[in-house]
Amino acid sequence: MKKLKDLASFIRFEYDLLVLKRVSKIISQIEHGYCVKQYLPVKDQYKIAFIVPGMVSYSGGHTSILRLGTLLSQLGHDVYYITYDGTSREKMEKSAEINLPGYQGTFLEQSELNKFNSDIGIATYWESCYWLLAFQDIFDYKMYFIQDFEPYFYAMGDLYYLALNTYKFGFHMVSLGKWNKSIVERKTTEKVDYIDFPVELGQYKLKKRKIIINKLVKIALYLKLDSRRAPFLLIQQIGYLHEKLSKLGYELEVYVFGLNKHIKLPFIKNLGKLKTKELIELYNECHFGLVASLTNISLVNYEMTLSGIPVIDLADGSAPTFFSEEEMIFINSNIDDLYNKVIYYLNHQDVLNDVLETSQNKIINKRLSWENSSNQFNNIIYRNVSK
């Protein structure tokens, strides 16, 4: 066990060191440690460049960038995605097509970054902010699309503060949802705009459904080997749930997605990384969805809800910022709390169906969609045209 812990610590240290080396390389090219000038000329459409860390298949964050870029393109803007990490254009295009078939916008490799003039440059990850700062002269207006509070990705130290400092560069910051906005404004003196946290209504259709559970309980679990998704905590709670339900005569089936398929877990069937159609089919078969949103809420919560499955998330995370206790089931970190909540709703299935219906109504009534959120982003751009 000690050898495994030592190996895990070494791998984490090596990864952090790799990030530090990559960031230090671009920091050495930065002339000013802040945004010197912001100027957005009056135009009907803009040339917009998202500065991206490559393009990773099945990545929710990368897919969100593609959705925003595609919809801005449909609004008439000339959209580009420029990587800073050396990924080839061909590989990025292939991953993008997996993430969002029919996406719009043009991919460019790192070599284009220091010679690509654009009206608007948009950082999409804390590392990309340093690249945008280093080459700020070729972008008239600098923005930061914040999908999460990224300092929380790291322990207190170098990387934490390198990520935190990006909120002080003077870029125009726009948060995906209110949670990031509240954290950044609390940790700094900067102001942040936000767009509503959306869901893809074109793919995840509203499914009205009455859940009836007999002796077989099925759970769809979104899991990643990332502390923000609390994999150890959720697996321990599922083990406890399995033991307790079996003593009461229930059978428990847990289907996990989001991991590499070769990973074996106790009491859990690993389905690997699923496409949208496969996810919808899984949700339609299950009675509960289980997600851990210790930082910004996941798109999965919204997608599960629309697909007709009530969602369980952590009370100590960001989900309570977006949903009430009447709209989502919240559990604490005690090993028995998942069991406590599940057994309550097994005995009160009318209340379970009320939770699902209320959360679905919230999404529909608030008109939460990528189209509306992209229009909000577009309006934010035009509100800041230089006079």
Rank of each mutant, 00 (worst) to 15 (best):
Y103V: 05
A230L: 14
H348A: 08
S182K: 14
Y161C: 06
Y255R: 13
L4Q: 11
E150A: 03
M328K: 15
F116I: 03
V23P: 00
D336E: 15
L7C: 11
K264E: 14
K168I: 04
Y130Q: 00
T321L: 09
S333F: 11
I122T: 02
L346H: 07
L72R: 05
P41R: 06
V256L: 03
L368R: 06
L7H: 11
N117S: 13
L368E: 02
Q29H: 10
L72M: 10
Q104D: 04
K178L: 11
S175M: 09
R89L: 06
L282I: 07
T87I: 06
E325D: 13
V174M: 04
F197G: 09
D85G: 03
E253K: 15
Y154P: 03
D148W: 02
S175H: 09
L72D: 03
K215Y: 00
L108W: 01
L338H: 01
Y125M: 05
I363G: 03
N332W: 04
N284W: 12
A123M: 06
L271H: 09
M92F: 06
E253A: 10
D337M: 10
N99V: 10
M55S: 08
G60P: 04
G102A: 07
S369K: 01
F288K: 04
D354F: 07
T189V: 12
I11E: 13
Y344P: 00
L66Q: 02
E285G: 02
S118V: 15
K178N: 12
T166R: 09
A292P: 02
L72C: 04
L346M: 09
E31A: 07
Y255C: 11
H262L: 13
V56H: 11
N114G: 00
Q360P: 04
G170H: 08
T70F: 05
L271P: 07
G202M: 06
N296L: 00
E14C: 13
E185L: 10
K224L: 14
N372L: 13
I212D: 02
I11W: 09
N260S: 13
L17G: 12
F169K: 05
S386L: 07
R367D: 11
Y240W: 13
N379A: 12
L40C: 09
I381E: 00
S333Y: 12
K261Y: 11
F169I: 06
I98K: 13
E31R: 12
L274D: 05
K142P: 01
D78C: 06
W179K: 03
N301R: 00
I195C: 10
L68T: 12
F288R: 00
I212E: 12
H77S: 08
D316K: 14
F197Q: 08
V79Y: 02
V23C: 04
F232I: 15
G86L: 08
Y345P: 01
A96G: 15
N347A: 10
L18V: 13
D337T: 15
E109D: 14
L7W: 13
Y130N: 05
L314N: 12
P320L: 11
S293I: 07
S128P: 02
R12D: 14
S293M: 07
V42D: 15
T166P: 08
L201T: 14
I381W: 01
I263F: 12
A319W: 01
K269V: 11
V256C: 15
I183L: 14
V342A: 09
I65N: 08
L113V: 03
F267V: 11
L108Y: 01
I329P: 00
K210N: 11
G121I: 05
D16Y: 12
K181H: 06
K181P: 03
